[in-house]
Design a binder for these strands. Structure first.
Lengths: 351, 351
DNA sequence: CCGCCTTGTGTTACCGCTAACATCTCCGGC
DNA sequence: GCCGGAGATGTTAGCGGTAACACAAGGCGG
């Protein structure tokens, strides 16, 4: 199953005991010094083509695999990066993680992960410790909560760091433009004639939640309307459901901008139970565009975040830093896209 | 931000250049040999309490962090484990990954990840290579596709391996009992009086898909009914939607067992559009119990898989192997639970 | 034809830690 | 009072690579 399809041996017998193949074994077989093998491995300074070929042959014959620990010890470089993250089961963080790992591998790095048990400084600390103890060369921190984002600010300066979705600080940051997304969502509703637009927000201590609320607020104000109603949720379908029930009893809004798709499904559920037609009676906009969103009842108008892009960009920034770029505090901002589906429609003037 | 709350220096100046603190520095400060420091670090053979305390103090003063590469080189142990996985953005694999990492950290191991780009042997090979190149001591493979599960069978024997959800082979395996889940789902529908129960299956080359179909088939047969209709999907809401449309035109079944929740949401959507009442006209059962399932329209009856448990058990098996337990081919099977909600109801005899 | 540079290769000394053995001290038993 | 052994600590030699320099052989200009 070796990637090169060979059936190399990769162990060598000496005094009757098996031993992993090391550089010296390759050197012996190729009739050169171990240093020449090292040079071939790092295809560095001139090695004659003949020698190079002989060494290569010896390597494949023996199935030689360089020992990363030894190399790391000698060079001082581990080629390991770390990702610390909360709530990796959510679609967003999970997508970023996948993109980060992939980009890292392409750039020749391995990725170690460390989840935070709780969204507090202590857990962040532990995760950092865990990763630095492995001598990672850099860390991507997915810390969407204000508390942990703040904790990042006084993270140990030793190791290069990129923050994803995590507030502001003196380190490079990659984030989707939550504010812009919220503005777009709200303007879309305004353009359909809605005036009283409620907002179901995420938890206060999430950076994204704050930005989305701010965008909604500003877009309304700019249009001469006032932000009348905010209900706080915790991103879960249940919270959306409860907020939806509250909205259903009031019946004083014709549209609602929900801070994420999971809550939006709860809202839709509550409306369905209350006999409220979407979008006939109330329009609903979500945020995230999770894969299920197109199949909600009705299909959800929402803002798509390109998590893959966020992952790739954050990794690129980290690698640049690791490879010696001057320490920057660049902020990469990725705009979300409004995806129109069937949960929004023109306001119905009933009376 | 150090976990111990100290403000240790962690660098030492020598000839005007900064250098990381190493064992020798600690030894010098404590007035002992570096070997004694090593002994304290590994709290091994008797070190006098006084010395131990002095060394500990020196460590914290200097902010000493052992170098893992050096330790790995000397001991031959990296304390790194690997996880290879496809489709980590799905709720199931993502949950397992989180549980695995957590359990690994508790057991004193770090976790590196390697995603498979495509669900084929080649990608699996590459992922394995990537992990073994880092000298991981063991690998958990989340390979729910038959093709990749088969490829595992002739994986290089060198490194301990645990397969999750991945068919059968000579290696230890942890899996949810998909067959049992499907039987339970089908029996539940049968007990409500349904006789013609369709199945929307996952892709042919997924182990889980096959098991779920087999369970459905057997439960029906056992009850004296015949498995009349299988529609194949690809786990996506879209596939479920299309299958739902097909079912809606036929109208010759009163219940459908859908192989996962994401497809189930598509089915519900199709039924809603076709004016089919769930569960009045047709009952629907899903599989997985993703967080959104309770908020579908209507809330979905489904089978809950304890992904966290799967992750923990697989890691425990791997660690046992890594730490020298005899190579086993133990199979851990975890039963899924039927979660009753509103998408299933007694069959309506219309004519 | 000699010395110098270039090219290819070997030698040696680390990187920071642990394993294995050596040494030293102190104690008790005869 | 001397010896043996246990306990505490030190010394040395790797682990498997890479960096830095040394060295040999050949090509070229003066």
């Amino acid at each position: 199953m070796a990637a090169d399809g060979s059936d190399a041996i990769s162990e060598v017998i000496e005094n009757g005991v098996e031993r992993r193949v090391v550089m010296a074994d390759v050197a012996r077989l190729a009739g050169v010094s171990h240093m020449t093998v090292s040079r071939v491995l790092n295809d560095s300074t001139a090695v004659s083509p003949t020698t190079r070929a002989r060494v290569r042959a010896a390597m494949t014959t023996l199935g030689y695999r360089p020992n990363t620990a030894a190399r790391a010890l000698a060079t001082g470089r581990t080629r390991q990066l770390g990702v610390v993250s909360v709530n990796t089961t959510l679609f967003g963080p999970a997508s970023m993680l996948v993109a980060i790992e992939r980009a890292a591998r392409d750039a020749g790095y391995a990725v170690s992960i460390a989840g935070m048990r709780e969204p507090d400084r202590r857990s962040l600390s532990e995760a950092f410790e865990h990763l630095t103890a492995q001598s990672v060369e850099g860390i991507v921190a997915i810390t969407p909560r204000a508390a942990t984002a703040a904790a990042l600010r006084d993270a140990p300066g030793g190791v290069p760091l990129v923050a994803v979705e995590g507030g502001e600080g003196p380190m490079p940051t990659v984030a989707v433009d939550q504010y812009l997304g919220a503005v777009r969502a709200t303007r879309h509703l305004l353009s359909l004639g809605h005036r009283r637009i409620a907002h179901i927000a995420g938890p206060d201590d999430w950076h994204e939640a704050n930005e989305r609320e701010r965008g909604w607020r500003d877009a309304l104000t700019e249009a001469g309307e006032s932000p009348t109603l905010v209900i706080n949720g915790d991103w879960s379908p249940r919270a959306g459901y409860e907020a939806g029930l509250a909205l259903a009893t009031r019946r004083d809004h014709t549209a609602v901008f929900v801070a994420n798709d999971q809550m939006a499904i709860g809202v839709l559920r509550a409306f369905a139970e209350a006999g409220i037609d979407v979008p006939g009676d109330i329009s609903v906009v979500g945020f995230d565009d999770i894969p299920e969103a197109a199949y909600f009842a009705p299909p959800l108008t929402t803002l798509r975040q390109d998590f893959g892009e966020v992952g790739r960009r954050s990794l690129a920034l980290l690698v640049a830093q690791v490879e010696g770029a001057p320490r920057s505090d660049e902020r990469v901002v990725i705009p979300p896209d409004l995806v129109l589906r069937d949960s929004t429609g023109p306001v119905q003037h009933k009376n």
